[in-house]
């Protein structure tokens, strides 16, 4: 007979089966269990892949049993694929300096003394984060202002909005080198050009999300405001703005993520001075794979933190508005 689609139908019957939760039920059935299993599988695959990926390197021993060959593959200076613990170590060393040798390994690993120098990964992360945040603020504000103008001015809606939508389809990041170089030749360097790229990237989603949000009130709600003879101002603050907030936060999450991308790409053409993008580029110049991976992990952590921060702001706002949605 045919197998059937296992689709939930009707109300959920959580706990209907009850009984004790076995280990396999926790690992394969819960919410976090499967994620942990998949992450563990990826790590295992990663370790396993280190040998075949690095086997071609001249510094690899061609003889010996599998264990020694794997040990060598996981400890290479410039591997094709570094092992996860190498990356972890690089993160530790590039933020807190070399491990003090006079202590046991784990206490040494967690004893940290941060020196704020251009060699420190945290310094680069902060460089990237600061231009990300400045760009995000500029782009977010610009996006909101543009959306408010577009919603209230028909001329702008008809003439500007199509271009904003169309420009979404254009690889805007390609313009990044121009912005950096042109502003550089005008004497503007450092944080601002990168922030401008970030702002340029992230105002699009904010504008589009906010236009959607500000026009999301139902015609009935707008009619209600008309029966009160409410001013445009009152309609905006009492109806349009609160209605737009969920849209705003959704688009801000997208915006801060691509703001970070903008900052990283903005650090590429300046010839690698500071920032995570610069670390990626120097790592790529000098074949420092471990450094690239560490910068990549740092960028991922920044992105996760930034998105989580916006999420937190969303929760606080929603709670302040009475926890709707």
């Amino acid at each position: 007979m045919t197998t059937e689609a296992a689709l939930p139908s009707g109300p959920a019957r959580s706990g209907a089966r009850g009984g004790g939760r076995t280990v396999s039920a926790v690992l394969f059935g819960g919410r976090t269990g499967p994620v942990l299993v998949i992450v563990a599988a990826i790590l295992a695959l990663w370790y396993a892949a280190c040998l075949p990926m690095n086997a071609g390197l001249p510094s690899m021993p061609t003889e010996g049993d599998l264990a020694t060959r794997y040990q060598a593959a996981w400890a290479l200076e410039r591997p094709v694929l570094p092992s996860p613990h190498q990356i972890l170590m690089e993160l530790r060393v590039s933020t807190c300096g070399r491990l003090p040798s006079d202590q046991p390994f784990w206490s040494a690993f967690f004893s940290c003394e941060i020196r704020w120098t251009p060699r420190n990964l945290l310094f680069h992360a902060w460089t990237t984060l600061s231009s990300t945040l400045v760009g995000f603020l500029m782009g977010g504000l610009l996006g909101i202002v543009l959306a408010v103008l577009i919603v209230h001015m028909k001329t702008l809606e008809k003439s500007l909005m199509p271009w904003i939508i169309a420009s979404q389809t254009v690889p805007i990041l390609a313009v990044a080198p121009i912005v950096i170089v042109v502003l550089g030749s005008l004497g503007i360097t450092g944080l601002l050009p990168k922030s401008i790229i970030s702002a340029y990237l992230c105002f699009f989603p904010v504008t589009i999300g906010m236009v959607k949000g500000l026009t999301s009130p139902h015609p009935i709600d707008l009619d209600l405001m008309r029966t009160y003879d409410a001013s445009v101002w009152a309609t905006f603050w009492k109806l349009r703005w609160p209605a737009a907030l969920p849209f705003l936060f959704a688009s801000l999450k997208v915006a801060i993520a691509i703001s970070l991308v903008g900052a990283i790409v903005g650090e590429l053409p300046t010839g690698a001075q500071a920032g995570l993008g610069a670390r990626l580029l120097t790592g790529s110049y000098y074949g420092q794979t471990v450094q690239i991976w560490a910068a990549l992990i740092a960028a991922a952590a920044l992105a996760a933190l930034a998105v989580a921060a916006v999420g937190l702001a969303e929760r606080i706002t929603v709670a302040a508005l009475g926890g709707r949605r």
Binding site: R31, P34, V35, S284, G287, A299
Partner: peptide, 25 residues
């Protein structure tokens, strides 16, 4: 259940950063 949270997380990451690694590989 295992891949979706990871996929959602990765979607927010600056994936462009893998470019130097891919060039190396």
């Amino acid at each position: 259940r295992g891949l979706m949270p990871i996929g959602n997380f990765v979607s927010a990451l600056p994936m462009i950063g893998i470019a130097p690694i891919m060039v190396m590989w």
